[in-house]
Computed example of a mutant assay.
Amino acid sequence: MRVLAAMSGGVDSAVAAARAVEAGHDVVGVHLALSRQPGTLRMGARGCCTIEDSMDARRAATHLGIPFYVWDFSERFQLDVVDDFVAEYAAGRTPNPCLRCNERIKFAALLEKALALGFDAVATGHYASILTDADGNRELHRAAAWAKDQSYVLGVLTAEQLAHAMFPLGATPSKAEVRAEAAARGLTVAQKPDSHDICFIPDGDTRGWLADRVGASEGPILDQAGERIGTHAGAAAFTVGQRKGLDLRIPSPDGRPRFVLEVRPSSNEVVVGPREALAVAELAGRRVSWAGIPPVDAEAGFACGVQVRAHGDPVPATAVLRGGELVVRPDVPLDGVAPGQSAVLYRGTRVLGQCTIDRTVSATLAAVD
C-alpha cells in the first residue's frame, strides 16, 4: 500500500512510520505546519509543531530513507481548531482541541489530500487499534496499553476514515518499548519528551491566552441561590468542575470547598456549589458520529460504557438515539460534565461512536423528577 505517515517530530510517529516501512509499504512522511508563526524551540514538554519538531521529523524520515514533505495546514487549523476552541469557551462550553484536530485536520483535511494524491492510508503514532469483524467491517478499539490509550480522541472517526487509517503502535504494550525500539533503530527522537497540554498554548497559560482573545472583565461568582459570594476576572476562563482559582469571600456554611457548576458568558456570571451538585444523571448531544457500523439497536437503546475525558475511565451506561439526539444515562452519576466535552461510547474495547455534549441533567433534579 501507499502510506502517508503523519510525522509530528515525536518518537511515536517516528516509530509508527518505521513500522510501516518495515511492513513493506511504500511510505512517504509528512509534517503538518499548523502555525503561521511557529516557535523555534519547544518549551520543555509543552507545545508541538515547532520548527524544531519539523526538523526532528525530517531527520527521522531521512534515517528511514523515505521522502518527506511539510504541508501547510495552518489556515485550516486556525479555523477548525483554534477558532473553534475560542468560540466554545466564549459560549461557556469546554472543548477538546485534540479531538477536533483529529476530526477536522488529521482525518479530514489530511486524509482527503492523501486520497486525492493516490495514497491508500494515513498512518499516525496514536495508541489505538483497528480490528476487522467477521463481515470485514473495520472497528476502532482501545490500544493494548490502556495507560497510553488514545481511542477517546479518535472517537470522532467515521467508517470511511477508519477504512484508510493505520495505527502501527496499537498493539505495543508500553511507551518504554516504543522508546527502546526508537533507540535500537537509531532514531534521534528516542528520548524526546512527550508533548502535553494544548499545542497552540505552549506556555500553558490558558486563562491568559483566552483573555487576550475572548476578553476578560470582572464579574460575580454566585452561589446556587443567586447570592454574590465572590468575584472573577473573566467567566471564559472557568469550566464546570473547576475548584482552583475561585476568589470566594464568603465561605460555605459547612466549610466545604465549592466547585464551578455553571458558566454564563452572556451575563459574565460563574455559579458555584458543593461537589455533589456536579453529579450528572443524563447527558445528550446532536453532533453524533459512529466509529464504524452503528449499533443495530441505536434507536431502541443499548448498553455501553461512556467516557467523558481523555484520561477517564468508562462508566456503564445506556444510550439511545432519539430524534437525532444521542441521550446517555450512566448507571452511576458522573461528576463535572460540561457542554462541549465529548461523550465517547464503548462496548468492551471497541469504540462505538461519540457525541459532543449539548446538555446535561443534574442527578439532584433527576431524583426529584
Rank of each mutant, 00 (worst) to 15 (best):
199 C>P: 01
27 V>S: 03
26 D>R: 12
341 Q>L: 11
229 I>Y: 09
195 S>E: 04
369 D>S: 06
117 L>M: 10
191 Q>A: 15
78 Q>E: 14
78 Q>M: 09
310 A>D: 13
174 S>H: 01
340 G>Q: 06
111 L>W: 00
245 G>F: 10
313 D>M: 10
215 G>L: 14
295 P>W: 05
167 F>T: 14
169 L>E: 02
210 L>T: 08
177 E>N: 02
302 F>R: 01
50 T>Y: 13
349 T>W: 04
125 G>K: 08
332 V>N: 11
288 V>S: 08
152 Y>I: 09
306 V>D: 00
192 K>D: 04
41 L>Q: 14
337 V>G: 03
366 A>I: 00
167 F>L: 14
119 F>T: 06
206 T>I: 14
290 W>S: 07
41 L>F: 14
314 P>C: 04
148 K>H: 15
157 L>H: 05
223 D>I: 03
149 D>P: 11
344 V>R: 02
298 A>I: 02
265 P>L: 09
291 A>E: 03
87 A>Q: 10
16 A>L: 07
251 P>Q: 05
73 F>M: 13
65 G>V: 07
339 P>M: 10
87 A>D: 15
236 A>D: 06
231 T>D: 07
140 L>T: 03
314 P>M: 03
271 V>C: 08
365 L>A: 15
247 D>R: 05
226 G>M: 10
168 P>V: 03
240 V>M: 01
63 H>W: 06
192 K>Y: 07
77 F>D: 13
78 Q>K: 04
296 V>N: 05
286 R>Y: 01
45 A>N: 15
122 V>Y: 09
239 T>K: 14
90 A>M: 13
300 A>R: 08
175 K>P: 00
161 Q>D: 01
1 M>L: 02
137 N>A: 11
357 I>R: 06
327 V>P: 04
300 A>N: 01
68 F>L: 07
279 A>R: 15
325 E>A: 15
210 L>E: 09
310 A>V: 09
305 G>N: 04
56 D>Q: 15
68 F>K: 10
181 E>Y: 01
56 D>W: 05
80 D>V: 00
84 D>F: 12
67 P>N: 12
105 I>P: 06
225 A>H: 05
50 T>C: 11
282 E>I: 00
279 A>M: 06
22 E>S: 09
59 R>H: 12
69 Y>W: 12
104 R>W: 05
71 W>S: 07
87 A>H: 13
66 I>L: 09
232 H>E: 11
12 D>F: 03
342 S>M: 10
256 R>G: 13
267 S>K: 13
114 A>I: 06
179 R>V: 03
194 D>L: 07
228 R>K: 15
304 C>Q: 07
318 T>S: 12
297 D>I: 02
352 L>M: 10
119 F>W: 02
294 P>G: 12
290 W>R: 11
92 G>K: 01
303 A>D: 10
300 A>L: 05
242 Q>D: 15
293 I>S: 15
272 V>K: 08
204 G>L: 03
